[in-house]
Amino acid sequence: MMETSDPPIVKLPQKRFYRQRAHSNPISDHNFNYPSHPKELYKDKCPDNKTWDELYPSRGDRKVEFADVGCGYGGFLVSLGETFEDKLSIGMEIRVKVSDYVMDRIESLRALHPGKYQNIACIRTNSMKYLVNYFEKGQLSKMFFLYPDPHFKKSKHKWRIINPSLLSEYAYVLREGGLLYVVTDVEDLYKWMTSHFDAHQSFKRLSLEEEKQDILHDKLLNRSEEAQKVERNHGSKFLAIFKRI
């Protein structure tokens, strides 16, 4: 029998259907599915979770090495995948609609460019609580924290994604020599975050020269949706890169 209907036209998802307010309470008990142990995602099936093979159809025996924590609408994640074609990058986002947008975006990109964008994926999770449910000790070589929620109120500082408790956890999932990237447009938050890195013995900041030479330097400042928004508003951007020692 002949196929009568037209082939479906693949379109990138429209952001207007996925808008969500920028803040999320990372302490509250939202509904999340997450593996009870990182090894669960290497199995053929993992109830309520996509396995790594389901997320990356051509994974082979590679493991995720780059994590964009709080990836937003995924602009930087896409750029990261294009820059490092042989590395697997994961975007982690807590907001339901925003993470769904990134998943739909990747699906469309894969359909529009067969064989490409196989190395990026997005999961909805609370990275502040469940990072070690996904990654083993020393698994990651790069972590990105781009334009994190500043949580201005002092009582909410604990909710900041860069805080002394979590730095130890990031040091645990990052391998020695791995890099952690931070970008923000809020100067006070920048000072707060760098002061905590300075106080933490597992991280050392790269020199300004080294930071400028990083292949991602310009992309970090320009490629995410947040970065473009700051650009439009003529705001300043602050970048810092730390090495796991």
Binding site: S36, H37, P38, K129, Y130, V132, N133, K137, L167, S168, E169, A171, Y172, H200, Q201, S202
Partner: peptide, 24 residues
Amino acid sequence: RDEKIRVTNYPKVHEINSYCMGHK
């Protein structure tokens, strides 16, 4: 409460030695 057991080095408390993961 989040099903985790964390093993932290002492006195180098900024180092996490391991996590015992598996409880639900």
